Amino acid sequence: MTQQTPLHATHVAAGARMVDFAGWDMPVNYGSQIEEHHAVRRDAGMFDVSHMLALDLEGADAKAFLRGLIANDVAKLVEPGKALYACMLNEQGGVIDDLIVYFLSDTAYRLVVNAGTADKDVAWMQQRLAATGAAATLGVRRDLAMIAVQGPNARAKTWAAIPGAEAASTALKVFQAATLGDIFIARTGYTGEDGFELTLPADKAAGTWAALTAAGVKPCGLGARDTLRLEAGMALYGNDMDETVSPLDAGLAWTVDFKDENRDFVGKAALVANGARQQALGLILEDKGILRSHQKVFTAQGEGETSSGSFSPTLEKSIALARLPLGVAAGDAVEVDIRGKRLKARVVKAPFVRNGKALV
């Protein structure tokens, strides 16, 4: 049986089309997915992301534990609320999950992990805590809901909807969070637009959603969330990386921190030994058709594969992220196997779109 977020009844009442996503009954759209996409690029839209899981890591060894758990280095987090995007790896250098870590203090961090990997992530972290003997505890926060408000007008409309939000968050830098009572306001997102991700008590979710709707924020489903993140060149776990794919091959080398030679982390030895064997680049289809995941790509340097693909409402073209052979460069002409036909595509550097502007 699929799980339901605290906003499930709100989505059903609004006529959302519901689908099973990672074991959760979630809205894919409320009508026009294209309109929802454009609302985020041009104004403000919001998503129920309560299926994702917040975790609170606390204890004297919290910092040291995280430095060994993830490939990015939490030691660079010194400002309260500052966030870090990171990959949690297995011993082979594959990605168990990608997550966000918020620094609250040297002994307290908040982590947000993906819905489909949440149980696996918690089990892995508990296993690592036991194996290392770290003096830290992991709190699983299923009592919380999460709402992402995104778009050029997202912050202003959030301030209009939530009393005190402007004073609490107006000075926030990108990838930084603050608290307003029992609401955790983070200037983060998964769309390539500005905005907030709000974490709040589950019983406040419906009222906050209604207030945001009244302020002119458009409810959006997972369909628009996927095309937005693809345009923004943001990786999706299970498509663009998984336990068999290294972050060095998935366009996530920037999330791996090797600066401190004395810091060891799970998967480091494998990354050092293997290096990058592929590279992640963008594709724009020049023939008629639709790019999807797991399509073979033919290049002068050998074969690659698309990892995510869809129609881009902003560019009005089909686009994809792909893992391609080393040596392929932006501007190269390639071919993609779509239903047995080789169609022409052009290699570009992602992102395709950021802050409402086409970049390719």
Rank of each mutant, 00 (worst) to 15 (best):
H8T: 07
T10C: 07
H11K: 09
A14I: 14
A14M: 13
D20P: 03
F21Y: 10
M46H: 06
D48A: 04
H51P: 05
M52S: 00
L53S: 06
D61V: 13
A64E: 13
R67F: 11
L69N: 02
D73V: 10
P80N: 15
G81L: 10
A83R: 03
C87E: 04
M88A: 02
I100F: 14
L104Y: 07
A108F: 02
V113M: 15
V113E: 08
G116I: 09
M125F: 11
R128A: 15
A131L: 15
A134F: 06
A135D: 15
A135S: 12
I147T: 02
V149D: 04
G151P: 12
A156Q: 15
A156G: 07
T158N: 04
I162M: 07
E166R: 12
T170M: 08
A171N: 13
K173Q: 14
V174E: 13
A178S: 10
D182H: 13
D182T: 09
I183P: 05
A186N: 03
T188A: 05
G192F: 05
E193I: 01
E197A: 03
L198P: 01
A202S: 12
K204C: 01
A211D: 13
A211M: 10
A214T: 13
V217A: 15
P219T: 04
G221W: 03
L222D: 07
A224K: 04
T227F: 07
R229I: 04
M234I: 11
A235I: 02
N239Q: 15
M241Q: 14
S246C: 06
P247D: 12
D249R: 00
D260M: 00
N262A: 14
N262C: 05
N262K: 10
R263T: 09
D264L: 10
F265A: 10
L271C: 10
V272C: 06
A280S: 13
L283H: 11
I284H: 04
E286H: 14
H294Y: 10
Q301C: 00
Q301P: 01
S308P: 04
S310G: 08
S312N: 06
S312Q: 06
T314C: 11
L326V: 15
G327E: 11
G327P: 09
A330T: 14
A330L: 01
I338W: 00
R339P: 00
G340M: 07
R342E: 01
K344Y: 07
A350G: 08
N355H: 14
K357V: 15
